[in-house]
């Protein structure tokens, strides 16, 4: 099939950007979306033009590196799918597809479709961990974890840290990401001791990074490639409020 792409091109952080149109021929329905971009880049390289820069690594939906807003939807039209897992069979011959980077002042654009998501790392630094220095751990069987809690923790821990939630949120909030981490660690008995300080510290850092507040709209959950549910934000809200009420930190 033949596809027309309109892609955000921006040379570097400081430069102004704009949408540029390209035609790509010979797109097969079995190509992944990123492979289609590879084809475009081969074409651009052959013509001596600058290929389009886009982040990707695992190309199987787990590393969280790929980050394309496709036709205005973070990670594109298919639900529960990261950009790299999207296949061209979901488009038709002659389509025009608009591709843009995540847009958030907290995720500055580095080039074309690549943004800087280090804000997420700093949220984790603020408290997204359980302190357990190497060597200090008791036997793994010493603590039983109810299956329900282990499963809940797992469902939160599968967040791939892609940032689509921020890209989709009309408030530019990263509460789904932050809530997923608070739920992961807070659902486990190991995570109880730091639960209050963790949620305060992460939320403070979240705000300091310039992310907006959550108004419970749920656009984030609609684009999240792994289906992190909205209740994880509520859980974080609850943890923060209880930490504010009880001075256990």
């Amino acid at each position: 099939m033949k596809i027309t792409l309109r892609i955000w091109r921006q040379h570097d952080r400081e430069a102004a950007g704009r949408m540029v149109s390209y035609g790509v021929d010979g797109v097969s329905p079995d190509m992944s979306f990123l492979e289609m971009l590879d084809v475009l880049n081969e074409q651009l390289t052959a013509a001596g033009d600058d290929p389009v820069a886009f982040d990707n690594d695992c190309r199987e939906g787990i590393c969280g590196m790929c980050s394309l807003v496709i036709n205005g939807i973070a990670h594109g039209p298919e639900g529960l799918t990261a950009s790299c897992q999207l296949y061209m069979r979901h488009f038709s011959d002659g389509d025009t597809i608009d591709i843009e980077p995540w847009r958030s002042p907290s995720f500055p654009i580095l080039k074309d479709l690549i943004v800087d998501r280090s804000a997420f790392d700093r949220i984790i630094q603020a408290g997204g961990y359980i302190s357990s220095p190497t060597g200090a751990a008791p036997d793994a069987a010493a603590m039983l974890v109810p299956k329900k809690d282990a499963d809940r923790a797992f469902d939160a821990a599968i967040c791939i840290g892609c940032g689509a939630c921020v890209a989709a949120c009309p408030n530019g909030s990263a509460m789904l990401f932050t809530g997923a981490k608070a739920t992961h660690l807070g659902a486990l008995p190991q995570g109880q001791i730091e639960r209050n300080s963790r949620s305060l510290a992460m939320v403070n850092q979240h705000d300091a990074e310039g992310f907006g507040g959550c108004t419970e709209i749920g656009e984030c959950t609609a684009v999240c490639p792994v289906g992190i549910p909205l209740d994880m934000i509520s859980r974080l809200n609850g943890d923060v409020l209880s930490a504010l009420r009880h001075n256990t930190t």
Partner: peptide, 30 residues
């Protein structure tokens, strides 16, 4: 805060005019 977290443009910060209403947001919410 939401405005500054979206460069003043909220849910309309993308160049594309496709899917401006988002995927699942309700009229009430926006």
């Amino acid at each position: 805060r939401s405005r500054s977290a979206t460069a003043g443009k909220g849910g309309w910060r993308y160049e594309t005019t496709k899917n401006r209403r988002g995927v699942q947001r309700s009229y009430a919410s926006f």
